[in-house]
Design a protein around this nucleic acid. Structure first.
Lengths: 186, 186
DNA sequence: GTCTATAATTTGATAGAC
DNA sequence: GTCTATCAAATTATAGAC
């Protein structure tokens, strides 16, 4: 990947997390990168194209940070803590909410291809969490694991939004703690 | 309030919940109402002005549905169930996420006045929930009530986003159930 | 209160020179 | 790969007639 191309993707991610799909433009990106908007179109012909690539890379780096598979022997406690830390770091390093959380809230006006990537991100998160919660559990048929996973994911996405609104990471810290506790109780 | 004015507000709320602040325009609203964009400007001089009124009315009707004060004698269980039902109804009647959840995710690019209304909505929700959780509790100094309130609110906002993305109310039902349970346990 | 007309700006996108 | 130049459409907003 060329330097310019990766700069465009980086700036686009930042702007999309600030204002969503309708919150960034080719000209703004170009200015921030130090080129002209026609040059951005050279790398990404359409906005749908660019957003798709931004969303895919976001998911890729999210799961790279997470570790695609639950490390063998990891306890549910340690894995859930690790999961929440990935969200926390995503906010801490940017002061912004989760890209997929932001785009979810614009779903109706998103190109279908982008909507599908976002839906895939949600599903992948739920699967990862479900596995982590079941990990090492004697009761492998624990029926509530998937629903607990949904609680943790939704709570964190909501907390990312409020943290971004109030510029206060405390929301992520506190909500993470209670969501983790809820997922492991009963 | 004139008929046209309330129609504008209704259409604007619907569109803002679909695509956020940058996801609706004066012309789109005008077309949907059956007038011209200049007539929309007659009722609401600026977009900030219009969005502010939409957000205020949304909060007002949200708390009207909720009941501003916890009814005396209501158990925490019944009150939390009622709270979750307000969110569920908000999705059920529109297929869309919470206005304040959507706008939270655009906070950085929002006019400051709108951001303040959204922040007020969050604070009011946390206060209501904190009171509901403490209600009738022998331990009136229950320290975790506020943090449990934050968990419930964030979980519901997150669930509204996913429900809107997947067009599946099940996310709200399931997340509500586990968030309520978590808030009342320990 | 609604309209026509219009201004000034921004948008996503393309053609073609270098 | 980047640029200049340009396009058609959409944006928020205003002036003034009816």
């Amino acid at each position: 990947m060329t330097d310019t191309r990766s700069k465009i993707l980086s700036v686009a991610e930042r702007m999309a997390r600030s204002g969503g799909y309708n919150g960034f433009s080719f000209r703004e990106i170009a200015t921030s990168v130090g080129i002209k908007s026609a040059s951005v179109h050279h790398h990404f012909p359409t906005k749908e194209n660019l957003t798709l690539e931004v969303a895919r890379l976001y998911e890729e780096s999210f799961f790279a940070a997470l570790g695609e598979f639950a490390p063998p022997g990891g306890t549910p406690e340690s894995q859930l803590r690790h999961y929440c830390d990935v969200f926390k770091n995503a906010f801490e390093s940017s002061g912004r909410a989760c890209l997929c959380g932001v785009l979810s809230n614009e779903a109706e006006q998103l190109p279908q291809s982008v909507r599908e990537v976002i839906a895939g991100f949600v599903s992948a998160n739920i699967s990862w969490l479900e596995q982590a919660i079941k990990q090492g559990s004697a009761d492998s048929g624990y029926d509530n694991a998937r629903e607990k996973a949904e609680l943790v994911y939704c709570a964190l996405e909501g907390a990312m939004g409020v943290a971004a609104l109030k510029q206060d990471i405390g929301w992520i810290t506190r909500v993470s703690k209670h969501a983790r506790h809820a997922a492991l109780m009963d």
